[in-house]
């Protein structure tokens, strides 16, 4: 009974959050001063387009039902979304928003996925060590290092890294995701890795600090528990206590933290991509903002939020597997 209710609750929360996000996306875009047809005309004029404007705007208005009342518009919008249609990019038509996102999304997923896993693993291990031997000098020194790294936001760390490793010691490229001159095979992959090192490093350094701090706190809590004292009293080897008793219990709340922080990682790394001109979603967003491509901004918002909500949802569904206590509560 407990488990069924848990899943039902999580599914309801997921659907409600998705609906809220979609509604926000629909409502916020109507904050733009002036009506959408005028905004669209203005954008076309900026691109020196003067022929066929009226037809284009009419087509656009019909597709999104902008001449109907607001409730009908909302239903139109939902139907379009269910068909996977995010609309046409206002500044790069006839390219659709989903095409552009599909082109840039893999870069973000690659950069974020890898750096997220690395930083989680590194930070958790470091935190476990910090908590286990919390009275040693080294652990206390490392604690303050982790604290400072976690207080520094990704993008400011990125600025410092660029200065150090691009300007002072030119080891890495300043911007972009790949070199135009390199193509095909192993060289291409190496080239991508070379370009991704600094952006990934700034994300890893900054978030690993946070993971280390939270893991240390959980570890210290577990170390105060009675079953650990018993394990020590039984004369178990410290390595065994560390691995099977302390680490396994401390890592549970850490995974919940992973779910909650995915949102921050995604949003924070949008900015890292801007600094490095890395061809992912953040860079696409930056360009869309600078030329006021509203359908593009909306599309990126929706994809980002969907990604965040869905990954939180998946982790919550998996959580009973990791923590058996939920099954019985």
């Amino acid at each position: 009974m407990g488990l069924k209710r848990y899943f039902a609750e999580k599914i309801c929360m997921y659907l409600a959050s998705m609906f809220t996000a979609i509604t926000l996306n629909f409502v916020i875009i109507r904050l733009i001063p002036g009506n959408p047809a005028e905004v669209l005309k203005e954008l076309l004029r900026q691109q020196a387009i003067s022929v066929g404007v009226v037809e284009f705007v009419e087509e656009y208005i019909r597709e999104f039902g902008l001449d109907k009342d607001i409730a009908t518009q909302f239903i139109y919008y939902l139907v379009q979304l269910l068909h996977g249609n995010l609309g046409v990019s206002m500044t790069r038509f006839p390219v659709t928003v989903q095409e552009l996102i599909a082109r840039h999304l893999p870069w973000s997923i690659g950069l974020l996925g890898v750096s997220c896993i690395i930083s989680f693993a590194l930070g958790t291990l470091l935190g476990a060590f910090l908590g286990w031997s919390r009275n040693s000098r080294i652990a206390q020194g490392l604690y303050y290092l982790a604290l400072y790294l976690s207080l520094t936001p990704y993008y400011l760390l990125a600025l410092i890294l660029v200065y150090l490793f691009v300007f002072l010691i030119p080891l890495f490229p300043f911007s972009g995701g790949y070199s135009i001159s390199v193509s095909g095979g192993l060289n291409y992959i190496l080239d991508i890795l070379w370009h991704s090192t600094l952006p990934a490093l700034s994300v890893v350094l900054s978030s690993a600090g946070g993971w280390a701090l939270s893991m240390r706190a959980f570890m210290v809590n577990v170390l105060g528990e009675d079953f650990l004292r018993l394990a020590k009293a039984k004369g178990l080897k410290p390595a065994r206590i560390f691995r099977l008793y302390a680490l396994r219990n401390a890592i549970l709340p850490q995974t919940t933290g992973l779910a909650l922080s995915i949102g921050n990682i995604v949003a924070g790394s949008l900015l890292v991509e801007v600094i490095f001109a890395y061809p992912g979603m953040g860079w696409l967003l930056f360009q869309a903002i600078s030329c006021l491509d509203y359908t593009m901004i909306q599309g990126i918002f929706l994809i980002t939020v969907t990604a965040v909500l869905t990954s939180i949802f998946i982790i919550e569904l998996l959580y009973p597997l990791i923590d058996p206590r939920i099954r019985y509560s």
């Binding site: 996000a21 949003a267 980002t304």
Partner: peptide
Amino acid sequence: VIPALPVMIL
């Protein structure tokens, strides 16, 4: 759960 930064950007 809705990430704040993307909403504020929008």
